[in-house]
Amino acid sequence: MSEKQSVRSDPNGGKWGDFLSRAGSTFAALGRTIKNAFVKLFSNGQACAGFCIIIFFILLAIFGPMIFPYDVTTNFSMRFLPPSWEHPFGTDEMGRDIFRQLISGTSNVLQIAFYTGLITVAVGTLLGIISGYIGGIVDKVIQGLANIVLTIPSFPVFLMLAALFTIESPIELALALSAWSWAGLCRSVRAQVMSFRERDFIQICAVMRMSKFHIIVKELFPNIISYVLINFIVAVRNAITGSVGIMMLGLAAYDPTNWGSMLERARNIGLVNPKVIPLLLAPLLAIMVFQIGTVLLSNGMDEIMNPRLRVN
C-alpha cells in the first residue's frame, strides 16, 4: 500500500522511469525464475514425464479437434463397431467414433480442471495467507469457515450444488467444485505462513518497519509459491475425478463428449453389455493416463522443491 504511495509521491516525474525499471527487473527476475524452474523440472525424471503427459493432453485439447474433427451425425449401421484402424476405439451406440469423441471432450475436461485448480488455489492461498499472517479475529472467522467446510463431506455438496443450479459451462462447474475444495489448502497455507512468520527474515521486517503488503507479497509469497504450485496440480487432479463423477451421474449434462458424459451413456446402455466396453474403457483410460501425469508431476515437483527429499 505504502509502496504505491511512495511511487506516486515522487515529484521529479521519475515515477515512470523508476516504475519501468522496477517492473523490468521484476520481469527479468521472473524470467530467470521460470528458466531455472524448467532446468530443474527436466533434471527430475518423474516431473519431466508428468509434464510431458500433461502437455500432450493440452496439445490434444487444442489441436486434436482440428486433426480429428468429430462428426456428430448418427449412423445406426455402424453401431458398436469393435476397434479397427479406422475407429481405434470402435464406435458408440449411435455409430459415432469414440476416439474422436474422446479428443473432442478433452478440451472441456481440461478447462473444468484448470479453472477449478485456479479458483481453489486463488481462494485457498489468499485466505490462508490472510488468516496466517493477520491472525486474530480474521483468522478465527476464516478457520471456522474452513472447518465447517472440511467436516461436511464434499461429494453430496457437489451433487446438491449441481442440482440447485443448472450448470452449463466449465466455469460454473469449476465454481461448484472449488466451493468445497479451498478449505484444505487454506489450512495448510495458513500453517506454512505461520511457520514463516516466526522466521528471522520475517521478524527483521518488523524491526525495519516494512509494510504488511511488502512482507506478504515480496517476502512470504515467493517462499510458498512452489507449495502453491504443487497444490494447484493436486487440485486439478481432484477436479478431474470430481467433474467426471458429476458428469457421469448426469448432473451437468451440457457436453455429451465430456469423458464423464461418455461414461454416463455407457452406464445408461448397461454396463453388463459387452458392446459398451470400448465406450467405457476409452474415457477411463484417458482419465488414468492424465491422472498418472499429474501424480508424476506433483511428486516430481515435491522432490525438486522439498529440500528434505532433494538428493545431492
Binding site: 505504502s2 521529479n12 523508476d18 522496477r22 518497519r209 516494512m210
Partner: peptide, 8 residues
Amino acid sequence: MHNPKWSK
C-alpha cells in the same frame, strides 16, 4: 521503503 523519494 524508508526513502520513497530516492531514485533507483
